[in-house]
Design a protein around this nucleic acid. Structure first.
Lengths: 199, 199, 199, 199
DNA sequence: CATGAATGAGTATTCATTCAT
DNA sequence: AATGAATGAATACTCATTCAT
């Protein structure tokens, strides 16, 4: 019972450092993000920063990991609360993408992050997101094999998941967009359901 | 008549600097690519480098632009030589992707580049490639409107083109891949033809 | 009576900190010897370390002092046990040097220390060793004035003692040595007895 | 003829950087000697410093090397000008030591250096001095073998040379000295001639 | 136009030391 | 007395860019 405070403080510090990383990243841009800035923004000394993170990269990685975790948490929550398993492919895809967009939009930083994703020094966490999506998708198809028998499923899932993730990322990172989000959303959903759905 | 030599020299110098950028990038990695290295590799002084390129980024940008140009040239060549206009959607997609992969593989540097694409300081040229593909695709559909009437064409093309480009890029940038290239290719082609083709 | 335990603990802690300093020094090298490492190795917090030593230098100084104390203790022991006073100069020198080498060799750390002596931040304890040797030597000559009347005794002792100490230190700190220890020893003894002995 | 200026400038810069190293070392002490200070003192940018020296250590090494070179040059000069070969051992030793002291005293920095010699990060150049002295001594004995046949010559020279060098260094590095330089000098000469001279 | 020596702002990281608990 | 989390000053080194020759 008396151990919690210390661990809580540590945890809080770690979180606040990731927050600070996000804030500095958003304000100064990736190139002007220094460890000293981050420490300042977190109201902590640089020394403390290095007590919790081995180097600068790991901070950005942690930030990305948090985003991925937020996304998967949001998905899991919906998967549990609604009976997503009952939905058909099209609606599932639509809802999944909507959840993703909502989660990203909920935290302005994540949008900033998406706008700079191609300059981040680490992509590792993306692999996790890809994996998570692949697993969820595989599970879904295991349960609905009858309804949606698919050739070459593995490759198709890989292609569709990466397509969706990167297309959304690119769409969000382009400022002036002639295309409406609704149309993009529809196109993505079409793409997914047409590729996987049997006709 | 006396101006040409000079312009030719300029042009040759510019090319050799881009070559050098590519070589240094491939050999030393993005992080150890310095302007001095590039100038050395090109057999030129740094000063001269800055005579032709305003900064380091522009060198990499030029390199990317060249890649994009190689790609579009290859596409154009095939588009002209074969009667691609006669092909159905599926075969067109398959051939287009094959051309892209062939062109990238023809220059080992381009593969290196793809493996580091997410760390490049510039993405600009990608826009051009996207634009080019969009234009070609639009043209194709203009000519085959009858055969392939498509709702929401603009958005679908945007989504499909970006999906294809980034999925390929990611596929090429992942070293150990459980998926065979052939399967990826098929999945991409399926995705494209199913999304655009009327059923 | 109740005070002793506390003082004993203090004493034990001080010793264990010096031990730890020695161990860390030997294992990580002078440059990677940090106060935190030392505290860890001693199983104590850094705070406690600073309760007993004002700064890092003082730890190394204490270590050197211990070495000097070990040396003088060994000398004293032999001086008492044998009747060194009865020996002639040559044998005295030979035995003294042998005692020194034996003592240094008995503790592997001391050898490490000698190999880095020129990088140690403190030389202070050396003064004490020099003083001790000077005193012993002076005493010896006081007792044998008749046998060994020497001009300029003070300066000669200073020169010989420093010569012996530093030459041995340098010899021990050079890894690959073409010269055999025995020859060095003989040369040193010759040097001492020829310089001080009357002819 | 047109190449000289550039090389001369380089050479001058190198020299001035070594001078600056010496000056900063003397003024701020070894611990507060930073590469930026040195560059400032040399009236040069840090970047330039690193164009000529790979790291900080190499600067100090160069300084020591210069001192060693000054010493050997002074010795060589005297060896040539006077017929040192004709001198007897005692006078040779006396003159050699005097030359050393004179050379060191001629440049106040060298004295500073001697006072901090045990804190210098490099000892390399000392090896060269030792070697030089050994060579000179060996040559002398080759020519005077008849007059001075010596047992165990190699070891004795090693011992005497290191003894002399380090004793002088230590003497110069001790501020308050009860002993007069003259006495030290005599003691050293006695030590050398008695150890090597046959009686 | 070419050169390449010179620049110097910029930054990640360490570690001796302190002090609130 | 003990702890160890927090501190933050301090520093070697890099590299894009400039400009005198």
């Amino acid at each position: 019972m008396r151990k919690l405070p210390k661990q809580q403080r540590s945890r809080a510090l770690v979180e606040s450092l990731i927050d600070a990383t996000a804030a500095v990243l958003a304000e100064h841009g990736l190139d002007n993000t220094t460890t000293n800035h981050i420490a300042d923004a977190a109201g902590v000394s640089v020394g403390s920063l290095y007590q919790y993170f081995p180097d600068k990269e790991s901070l950005i990685e942690a930030l990305l990991e948090r985003m991925v975790k937020d996304l998967t948490t949001a998905f899991n929550f919906q998967l549990d609360s609604q009976n997503l398993g009952e939905l058909d492919l099209e609606n599932l895809a639509r809802i999944a993408i909507a959840i993703g967009l909502t989660t990203l939009r909920a935290n302005p930083l994540y949008l900033e992050l998406m706008q700079n994703w191609h300059r981040l020094p680490v992509m590792g966490p993306l692999d996790k997101l890809e994996q998570y999506m692949l697993n969820v998708a595989r599970l879904y198809f295991l349960q609905h094999f009858q309804r949606y028998p698919v050739d070459n499923l593995q490759a198709k899932l890989y292609v569709l998941i990466n397509s969706t993730l990167f297309t959304l990322a690119r769409y969000l990172s382009q400022d002036n967009n002639a295309l409406r989000e609704q149309d993009i959303l529809n196109a993505l959903v079409d793409m997914i359901s047409n590729t996987l759905g049997n006709k």
